[in-house]
């Protein structure tokens, strides 16, 4: 899942300051699940923005809508009928959603209301942690299911650095040392040998080093 967090109110307010009629658009996918931009957060932000404008002594009109998925053109089409009655769009989706809106409604100023953070998993209710960097060449099969790219602070490939201490990373006692986790897991699986094998330098091109990436599935293209 893509995780995100609402931007500071101050920043959002600055974006929409010049406008009187705002289209506030949520997304019912990842940002709903990570409580950053679903129907409820849309309601709360709308409420906060209205309160802010009252404080400024001005009237603001906020139209709330939450799309099934903001990164698909068909869903984004739902805004078409009302878009002309607004002055600006504030998106609570991840960067993909914001750009899909911007691509479709070219005349309209589109602003993000959230910061898109990482691809993560839910550790427990209310806590999300980074698990994947989308490097394009998954190593999990040989690292015991724990990703050194996303979870080692230095993205090291051949064991921990000198900053590991009692299973924790030197950047913070809150952060597990990915290589300690990998070792424990390989041990549990009886695959200690894997750890001995040296990994070659990684080809970072599939991870974006070769420019913006795209998937084309010829069989699916209509």
């Amino acid at each position: 899942m893509i995780t995100a967090e609402q931007k500071p109110l101050e920043e959002i307010i600055a974006y929409i300051e010049p406008y009187d009629r705002i289209f506030l658009v949520g997304c019912n996918e990842c940002v709903t699940v990570c409580a950053a931009g679903g129907r409820k957060e849309v309601g709360l932000l709308a409420s906060a923005l209205r309160l802010n404008s009252m404080k400024q002594g001005k009237t603001i009109e906020i139209k709330e809508i939450t799309l099934e998925r903001q990164c698909d053109p068909e869903y984004v089409e739902e805004l078409a009928s009302d878009i002309n009655r607004t002055d600006a769009v504030l998106s609570m989706a991840c960067g993909c959603g914001v750009q899909t809106l911007a691509g479709r409604y070219k005349e309209m100023p589109i602003f993000p209301a959230v910061n898109t953070l990482f691809m993560g998993a839910s550790e427990s209710q209310g806590i999300w942690a980074e698990r994947c960097r989308g490097c394009g060449d998954c190593l999990l099969g040989i690292t015991g299911g724990i990703c050194p790219v996303a979870r080692c602070s230095k993205s090291l490939f051949n064991g921990p650095c000198g900053g590991t201490c009692s299973g924790k990373c030197e950047i913070s006692p809150e952060v597990d040392c990915a290589w300690c986790l990998i070792w424990e897991r390989l041990k549990a699986l009886g695959m200690e040998k894997r750890y001995e094998e040296l990994m070659e330098a990684k080809d970072w091109r599939p991870s974006g080093g070769g420019g913006p990436r795209k998937i084309v599935r010829k069989d699916l293209v209509l």
Partner: peptide, 9 residues
């Protein structure tokens, strides 16, 4: 949370 905000609004 929405109810609390509504009251202030």
């Amino acid at each position: 949370a929405l109810h609390m905000m509504r009251a202030f609004e």
